[in-house]
């Protein structure tokens, strides 16, 4: 073994020592060598000087504001990604990828390909070179050119995708939806209107529209469809204002165990402290619910919001002693959205 290799081996040993990669016996042996071997000690002190300047664990500082901003932004992006994945073409693509990546028979892969071609034909426009014709929108709708429908201002194009474009043969395949404007007027207690609004929340409508929908539905939570829509908003909406409105609406329904489960999820995972406080205040109306107590123990004791932490501690302690707590309002701290 030459000197260079000795130095390299010693350098590796020093690193292992610094980064805790030695057993107790190895550490002891190394420390003994340090006391007796001058060269080793010199190398170690060289490394040590670096660690004094930049100790292990010296890392970029991430403050709470920055973390929350990133979490909120990621939430929006994840939902967009989830929506993108849910489109039909993505479903087919994922199915094919899953088929190809699994050790399945060639026959199954061929079946997958054939299904895709068949589906593509079903979606494709008619191959007329003379004019573009559109699919009927509904069985009772007159068969008219889509351009005529758009120009009459009754419809608009949404979700247009150019699926195929072959410059040599001039072939093109376009897939699109035609949306017609419609108006509904009636009572918010009408189940049909409630169904329409509840379904709209999951569609691509603006933040302010979703907020308006939640406000409209907030007193109609006796129907399960509305409850589901409010729950979906609380757990999935990227806008904290919308989630807060959903939390406040669901708070009135917290007698229901399914609603409490949603509130518990919000309490344990929402990035916005105001929303977690709203969920918390709804849940502590039902301290006989052991699942709530478990959530407080698992998550709320470590919450970044002091009110939640302090009150959770009291709740858990009193739960042990089996005494009932009066319900307090949160202090006038900042629980901004």
């Amino acid at each position: 073994m030459n000197d260079n290799q000795n130095i390299n081996d010693d350098q590796m040993l020093i690193l292992a020592y610094i980064y805790g990669d030695l057993s107790a016996e190895q550490r002891q042996a190394f420390e003994q060598r340090l006391q007796s071997e001058v060269e080793l000690k010199k190398l170690f002190e060289q490394q040590n000087a670096f660690d004094k300047l930049m100790p292990g664990g010296t890392q970029p500082v991430i403050n709470d504001d920055r973390l929350h901003a990133v979490q909120w932004s990621l939430q929006k992006r994840l939902r967009k990604e989830s929506n993108r994945q849910r489109t039909l073409s993505s479903r087919i693509k994922n199915m094919l990828q899953a088929l190809w990546s699994q050790p399945v028979s060639f026959g199954a892969q061929l079946v997958g390909m054939l299904l895709t071609f068949s589906f593509g034909f079903l979606l494709a426009q008619s191959n007329s070179t003379e004019s573009i014709s559109g699919e009927p929108l509904a069985s009772h709708t007159e068969l008219r050119s889509p351009l005529q429908l758009i120009e009459s201002d009754n419809y608009e194009i949404v979700d247009l995708q150019l699926k195929q474009l072959e410059p040599q043969s001039d072939k093109v395949k376009v897939v699109y939806s035609l949306a017609s404007k419609a108006q509904v007027q009636g009572s918010i207690t009408d189940p049909e209107i409630q169904n329409l609004l509840a379904a709209s929340i999951k569609n691509d409508v603006s933040d302010s529209t979703r907020l308006d929908i939640i406000e409209a539905l907030k007193d109609q939570g006796n129907r399960s469809l509305v409850k589901d829509a409010l729950s979906y908003s609380l757990l999935n909406d990227p806008n904290p204002g919308v989630r807060m409105a959903a939390a406040e609406s669901l708070a009135k329904l917290s007698d229901n165990e399914a609603v409490r489960e949603v509130l518990r999820q919000a309490l344990s995972s929402d990035i916005n402290s105001g929303i977690r406080v709203a969920a918390f205040q709804a849940l502590i109306q039902h301290l006989d619910d052991q699942k709530t107590i478990e959530t407080l123990k698992s998550y709320s004791l470590k919450d970044s919001n002091q009110y939640i932490r302090d009150f959770s501690k009291r709740v858990i302690n009193d739960n042990k002693n089996n005494t009932q707590l009066p319900v307090e309002k949160s202090p006038d701290e900042t629980t901004q959205i």
Partner: peptide, 24 residues
């Protein structure tokens, strides 16, 4: 299966460390 909330729960609590790694 595409459940975003489930994914968020999976990464819950690791964000600061991962952001710190990214910052490195």
């Amino acid at each position: 299966q595409g459940n975003v909330s489930a994914f968020e729960q999976l990464i819950n609590g690791t964000e600061r460390k991962m952001l710190s790694i990214a910052a490195g």
